[in-house]
Design a protein around this nucleic acid. Structure first.
Lengths: 211, 211
DNA sequence: ATCTTTTTTAACCAAATGGTTAAAAGTCTG
DNA sequence: CAGACTTTTAACCATTTGGTTAAAAAAGAT
């Protein structure tokens, strides 16, 4: 018997368990819960389909572990940055920097989260999301204060936060459409998205400059 | 025999054909090609499953028609706005205005397009996207000119376009996460998203103001 | 009313899919 | 090596799923 909750004997990166997990990760991210098939996962992991059920009992359990790992991977970085007590300007710079780096390393994760959360909201909220999400209160307060102090143009703090996130995330999510509309090749698009970090930061600060 | 390519005898809104189409529309948008099941579509349309195949031969064909109709619905509005020769400022205002209105009327469409295009790129590009997508050249040129004339701060036109679209679309796409992080109820979120139009426009123009 | 055509249904079918079982192969420990 | 335990496989199984068929019901045309 082999339950994953047990002693993590050998999660060496080429253990069978890990190979399955990696294959599942890849396929779930690419095709979602509905689109990914157990047989395909087994094939990609180079093993028998029965082994999937030996290590991870059901498709749902396997999905749950993969999705959890995805979520728990990114959240701490975002959390630490946004909940820190860096001064506002520095915080925004760092947030954009870390966030875009994070996404560039895992370009398909945001779309996975968004679209799976839309398709299976109950499951996601109950079983996958962590109890404690990043809390934006500190950031929102900082913006309020900066507005009051006249350091930045008057803006609604919540909208500002949403704007920053939109500017960071959306281009990666909508990459295929972007490529088509702007007539870009893969490499051009890569190049272009690499410039986003500075471009977005500048855009935000320009928008915040008091008049 | 009943082929949809034939004379559109009675596409009255409560014809069987239309009821099927509407049910399929709803489910495909909600669950995607993989997640939507023919039986469920039949149930929702209140008819026998065999009728689906009588009117639309296969799932793929049905999906193709629904997806096409979705795409072709929004594109002309965007196209007309962005390809018009309104002055830049006016164009941006109108674009944000129309675009956000469009999305508010169909809040699940953007995520549908993005996620389905990522999951079935070949099918989407070959069978569903129209030959002619909105061409951004005029807009890009206008931005260049405005930069050269010093009317706006120097920005990369492509990034600017992408920024505008990101600010308009992303909040609707990421709505569930937004609600959780900002601790909003449905009605609050509705209210909040309603404010976006002015908020986004102001944000963009502030970011473009020459220093 | 009768014949024809269109629309709808119930019953099927084959393939795919998630999951199980029992036995074989491999590993570990005395 | 023997015995115990773990890992892996091939062969199944039940359900779901997309799709078909043949006949019934409804609607039109003469």
């Amino acid at each position: 018997m082999r339950a994953t909750e047990m002693t993590p004997n050998d999660k060496t990166n080429d253990s069978t368990e890990q190979k399955i997990f990696d294959a599942a990760h890849e396929l779930f991210v690419q095709k979602g819960l509905d689109g990914a098939k157990m047989q395909e996962i087994a094939d990609r992991a180079g093993i028998n389909k029965a082994l999937l059920h030996y290590y991870y009992r059901t498709k749902d359990k396997l999905y749950e572990m993969v999705a959890k790992s995805i979520i728990h991977q990114g959240i701490p970085i975002i959390q630490k940055t946004i909940e820190s007590d860096l001064p506002l300007e520095e915080k925004i710079i760092k947030f954009v920097d870390f966030y875009i780096d994070l996404i560039r390393r895992n370009p398909f994760i945001p779309l996975f989260i968004i679209s799976e959360m839309n398709k299976h909201p109950e499951q996601f909220i109950e079983k996958i999301l962590p109890a404690r999400l990043p809390r934006p209160e500190i950031f929102l307060k900082q913006v309020e204060d900066a507005v009051a102090a006249g350091t930045i143009r008057p803006v609604n703090p919540q909208h500002l936060l949403l704007n920053i996130i939109s500017l960071c995330v959306f281009p990666f999510v909508a990459r295929p459409i972007m490529q088509m509309v702007l007539g870009m090749q893969k490499t051009e698009a890569d190049q272009f998205l690499k410039q986003r970090k500075t471009e977005v930061t500048e855009f935000i600060f320009a928008a915040l400059r008091p008049r």
